[in-house]
Design a protein around this nucleic acid. Structure first.
Ligand code: MN
Ligand code: MN
Ligand code: ZN
Ligand code: ZN
Lengths: 144, 144
DNA sequence: CTAAATATTGATAATGAGTATCAATATTAT
DNA sequence: ATAATATTGATACTCATTATCAATATTTAG
C-alpha cells in the first residue's frame, strides 16, 4: 500500500527542509499513509507502537504536525474534541458524511457544491483558501 | 436588543423543564442573546462578570449547555479548539465564512447548497440530521 | 573515518478547555 | 414558614495537546 516513490518523497522533503531522517518518523509516515483513515493521534500512537514499541507520544504529535505541514497528511478537527488524521498523498480534497450512531466516515465531493462555495466566497469579497463541510446523519446500517 | 418576549420564553422553558430561576442564568441568557455573536465561553464569562461579578466558570458552562439544549443558542466547534456560541432565538440555521487573518465571521445560507447537501445524504443512504460548513479565506479589508 | 555541530527523541511537566464533585445557598412547593 | 429540591462557586479532575530538557542519533566538515 505504501510505494517506494512515497517513501522517497518523504525523505526528499526532510532533506529539502534540512530535517534529519529517523526511523520513528518513517514508521509514523508509513502508518499514516498505509493504514486506516480518520484516526486520532492516540490511535496512531497505538498502531505505531506495535511496530515500534518505545516511541513517545510527543514524537507522534510532532511528526503528525510535520506531515501536515508537508502536505502528506491532513488534520480534521472532530466534534468529539480530538483531531483525526488522514493521508493526503493520493487523496485530494473531499468532505465527509459522518454517522452520528457508529462514527462511520464516508468521503464525498460534490462538484456543484464546490462551485457554489467559490461563488459564496466571491459574493462576500473573500479570497478563497479552503473549506470544511461535514454532514451528520444516520447511516443505512444504523437505521436497521 | 433583548425583548420581554424572549425573557418570558426563557422563564417558561425553565418552568416547563422543572428547572429553577436564577439571576445568574438570566444574566447569561441576556449576554448570549443580546451581545456579540461567536463568543467563546471565556469571553462570555468576562462579559457576564461585568454585570454580575462573582459568577463562577462552571455556571457559565452549565448554562450555555442549558441554552443549547433549549435551542436558544448554538455551539460552534472552532478550529482554534474552543467552542463559540451564538444566539439561535431569532437566527435560524446558517453557515460561516471566516477570515483567516482577522477572524471576522460572515453568516451565509445558500439554498442551492442546502439542497445539494440533502441530495448527498440521500445518495449515500444517510438520514440527514445536521451539517456544518465553514469557508475559510481572506476578507476584503484584510487584502487591502 | 572521526569529531563537532546540530536535530531528534522520550519522559514528563505544563497548558487550556471543559466536566465532575460537593458543601453551602437559593428557589419552589406545601 | 418549612421541607424538598435544584443551583451555585470553588476546586479537583480529565483529556488532548504543547513545551521543556537532558540524553541520543544523524549529518556535516575535516
Ligand atoms: Mn477523509
Ligand atoms: Mn453565526
Ligand atoms: Zn452508522
Ligand atoms: Zn479579515
Amino acid at each position: 500500500m505504501l510505494t517506494e516513490k512515497e517513501k522517497r518523497a518523504f525523505q526528499d522533503y526532510l532533506t529539502q527542509e534540512g530535517l534529519k531522517f529517523s526511523l520513528q518518523r518513517m514508521k509514523i509516515f508509513e502508518t499514516v499513509l498505509a493504514g486506516l483513515k480518520h484516526l486520532t493521534a492516540n490511535e496512531i500512537y497505538k498502531n505505531v507502537q506495535k511496530k515500534y514499541p518505545g516511541i513517545g507520544y510527543a514524537t507522534i504529535y510532532r511528526t503528525l504536525r510535520l506531515l501536515c505541514d508537508a502536505g502528506f497528511c491532513t488534520e480534521l478537527k472532530c466534534e468529539d474534541g480530538a483531531c483525526r488524521y488522514e493521508q493526503a498523498f493520493v487523496n485530494a480534497h473531499h468532505d465527509h458524511l459522518i454517522c452520528t450512531k457508529c462514527g462511520r466516515f464516508v468521503e464525498v465531493v460534490d462538484p456543484q457544491i464546490e462551485r457554489l462555495q467559490i461563488r459564496l466566497f466571491k459574493i462576500n469579497g473573500f479570497l478563497p483558501q479552503r473549506h470544511r463541510m461535514e454532514l451528520y446523519g444516520v447511516c443505512k446500517q444504523c437505521r436497521k
